[in-house]
Computed example of a mutant assay.
Amino acid sequence: MRVLVVEDEQLLASTLLIGLRAEGFTVVAVATGVDGLARATEEDFDVVVLDIMLPGLNGYEVLRHMRSRGIWTPVMMLTAKDGEYDQTDAFDLGADDYLTKPFSFIVLVARLKALVRRATPQRPAILEAGTLSLDPSRREVHRDDVAIPLTPREYGLLEYLMRNKDSVVTKAQILQNVWDANYEGADNVVEVYVGYVRRKIDIPFGTRTIETVRGVGYRLASEDLS
């Protein structure tokens, strides 16, 4: 899941960045309304966490411009204010949910996941590829009836591959969607993590699910390639 965080409070923004990444999300964080609007309209995100009080453009203006441009990415509004008038403004402009600071991080994560589920009903509740299954709501992976524990990064990689099942995805696409657009390290980190995932979902079961397409990237097959 790709999340855009638009928040100018540095401590809160850093906390959200670290916490959401620990949950396995790919996070892009910006500190101004202008930057938030630019990223929200030029890139694909599953959900936007948008503060109301921002420099440049406030959250209401960012949301209004997004909706006027046909950008219907789910938006969770954050504000230090607490009043029905603020909530009404946000919902009238097209916000999908609203949290007042301070808030519980656990509640934020649960509500972000709920927003994405509601916004993408075409996505199956459980992703499957042969005997391999991934449940996004529970963040669980099984091969047949055997649970497979994955780290947040491994889970993010497998989920991305399964959502693009039978399609070849490049290292650049994986880095942008599983790491983030600002990642500046070597792209061989993708090979390393593909290896980690293979050693958990395939090798113990004698299966072959992820195919390396030389010079291009990787493809997760809908059936065992062995």
Rank of each mutant, 00 (worst) to 15 (best):
K171E: 02
A181S: 11
G33P: 05
A147K: 09
T41L: 13
T131H: 12
R2A: 11
H142C: 11
V197C: 05
L158K: 01
A38N: 10
R64I: 01
F45P: 12
L127I: 09
Q176N: 12
H142M: 11
G206N: 10
R118D: 00
G156M: 03
L54R: 06
V49F: 04
Y193S: 06
A80W: 03
L17C: 08
V75G: 09
I174A: 07
R219I: 14
G206A: 13
R123V: 08
A38Q: 09
R118Q: 07
D82L: 04
K101F: 11
M53G: 06
I203A: 15
L150G: 07
D92W: 05
L157Y: 10
S68E: 11
R2C: 09
G36A: 06
L54D: 03
G24E: 02
T73V: 15
G156Q: 09
F25V: 02
E128N: 05
L4E: 02
V47N: 08
W72C: 04
L63A: 01
E43M: 08
N188T: 13
L16G: 02
D96F: 05
R143G: 03
V34P: 00
L63F: 08
R143V: 14
S167H: 09
R198Y: 06
L93T: 14
Q10L: 11
N177M: 02
A90M: 13
G24T: 02
P74I: 10
V30I: 04
L12G: 03
G56T: 14
I106K: 15
L175V: 15
I210W: 04
A181D: 09
L93C: 10
S137N: 08
T100E: 00
I203Q: 15
